[in-house]
């Protein structure tokens, strides 16, 4: 019965020490009973090959041992939908941030391919860290059986209305949030993009003109409120009258700011440019024309949104 003992030894190797001996003793009796019965039927001892058939029927040692172990999982079925949602949300936010950063890096650096690869590897590294952190958090929730209050205290009347004109796409809210946050960071000087313009292989630095200074706080407040509205819209993705009124107000302020800035002749100042493209030369002129164009487009977008929001308010 050496083969049986070897089989049982293999099973024992996969079992927790506390219960291994007990389980193996019972398995041994079962296997020997089967072999003895077969031997009684045949009237002789089983050959090694015949014993092997009995053991194979019993199953691979790892599988047999696995049946005795408690069912284990990292993220259980109750927590899984929330873990999956958090993971997708995180990957989307990180992805959007890296897309914007990569876009800026590609436009402003001398080596776009390198910038693209740096962004891709940066995204992979950041995403892996966040995946690990989110998984650990949800494992702790699962392990300590933390009750999520909102699952017990939800109210049917607070569920989203039937999808229609009032629905807000979460992807849009997320995009607005990421862009607003990046803008606020850049506006406050916490995030620095290389403000370079390439012309005939020569890099020229540029910066905003002093014309923006009186509106610095106003623009910051507008961007922060936009980000806040995007968060609320992401959590409850449907328009309500108060949020519509707020967005109309924001857009009216936006049109006002775009108008007063449009009236300024110099919005962008080129630094250290060659004489031809100097401070008030061709390059500065082109950049200022571009910025005036951007302000016109922004004003139009605000106006379209105001019309849409008024229609939502009047005909919900």
């Amino acid at each position: 019965m050496e083969l049986v003992d070897r089989y049982l030894q293999a099973v024992e190797g996969y079992l927790p020490p506390a219960s291994a001996q007990d389980i193996v003793a019972e398995l041994k009796d079962s296997l020997l009973s089967q072999i003895e019965e077969r031997e009684r039927e045949l009237g002789r001892e089983l050959t090694a090959d015949e014993q092997q058939v009995v053991l194979k029927q019993s199953g691979h040692p790892m599988l047999v041992a696995g049946r005795y172990l408690p069912q284990q999982y990292l993220i259980g079925p109750n927590v899984f939908p929330f873990w999956w949602l958090a993971l997708r949300l995180m990957l989307t936010i990180v992805g959007l941030v890296y897309v914007v950063l990569a876009g800026v890096a590609i436009v402003s650096s001398g080596n776009p391919i390198q910038a693209l690869f740096q962004a891709a590897f940066g995204f992979a590294e950041t995403a892996l860290v966040y995946i690990a952190v989110i998984t650990v958090v949800f494992w702790l929730l699962e392990h300590y059986q933390v009750r999520m209050g909102f699952l017990d205290n939800w109210q049917p009347k607070k569920l989203a209305p039937i999808k229609g004109r009032s629905q807000i796409k979460r992807s849009e809210s997320l995009f607005v949030l990421v862009v607003s946050v990046l803008f606020v960071f850049w506006w406050c000087g916490w995030l620095k993009f290389p403000a370079l313009f390439y012309h005939n292989g020569q890099a020229s630095a540029y910066t905003l003109s002093p014309a923006w200074a009186p509106y610095w706080w106003g623009i910051l407040a507008l961007a922060v409120t936009d980000a806040g509205l995007a968060v609320v819209n992401f959590i409850s993705p449907w328009w309500k009258w108060d949020r519509l009124l707020l967005r109309i107000l924001l857009n009216v302020i936006g049109i006002g700011l775009a108008t007063v800035l449009f009236q300024q002749e110099i919005l962008i100042v080129v630094i250290d440019a060659a004489t031809e493209f100097g401070r008030h030369g061709k390059l500065a002129s082109h950049l200022n024309q571009l910025m005036h164009g951007v302000l016109v487009i922004l004003g139009l977008v605000y106006a379209v949104e105001i019309v849409q929001d008024c229609r939502r308010l009047l005909r919900p």
Partner: peptide, 11 residues
């Protein structure tokens, strides 16, 4: 019933 199902069930 397989023994690998029966014995864990008994436990």
């Amino acid at each position: 019933i397989d023994e690998s199902t029966l014995y864990p069930l008994l436990r």
